[in-house]
Design a binder for these strands. Structure first.
Lengths: 96, 96
DNA sequence: GATTTTTTAGACAATTGTGTCAAATTTAAA
DNA sequence: TTTAAATTTGACACAATTGTCTAAAAAATC
């Protein structure tokens, strides 16, 4: 599961705002070491962290949540046969 | 991650055909103990197993694959805020 | 250039999930 | 009902992943 994508995105946002890892890590109750690894793609971002990231990085929660979930799904399954059919099937399930 | 759903489905198909776990397990190179736990939802079905299941249970691969992936996605994320938006976003990514 | 701050790296223990084995239990067949 | 087959259970070793700690390295500040 490569996907340093999201971690890199977080880093970009953080540097944009000029906030050190120390501050973000504190908000998330994690070590700076862990955050560093997250940004480098060596640790997973969990969905529970998204709200915290959006708040401390002043990024729209909806946007970040959508980005996180959709990238995760694509990373996990897009190379699988019948991926698009599976997504269509998800939509069918939602609409019920 | 409850989701005994897929395991139960496998079991139903297997019993429909009257095939003992022993046979299916052998085809998948796993222990009957592992298969039992899979059917009971105590072990995960991996996507690598789907092809084998479809062959030994004489079930359409596409159908099983779609069922597996879509159920996994729904189980993992459907209770998250902006889930449907995330799925729409996946579709956007696919179409590129 | 020295000092402080930030970031990274590596080692580690803790946690979690895996498949297998052997034995127990349940089910089916004789 | 015995016997045999099928299924389940629990203990276990093994692997993968996690977050933290300490110290090193890199970057920024003075």
């Amino acid at each position: 599961m490569k996907s340093a994508d999201f971690g890199a995105y977080i880093r970009a946002k953080r540097e944009e705002k000029g906030i050190p890892q120390r501050i973000v890590a504190h908000r998330l109750n994690i070590d700076t070491s862990t955050l560093s690894k997250i940004e480098l793609g060596e640790r997973q971002v969990t969905i529970e962290m998204i709200k915290g990231f959006s708040e401390i990085l002043e990024t729209d929660f909806k946007e970040l949540q959508v980005k996180f979930i959709s990238e995760k799904i694509v990373n996990d399954y897009s190379n699988q046969p019948f991926f698009s059919e599976a997504i269509e099937n998800v939509i069918s399930k939602i609409k019920q």
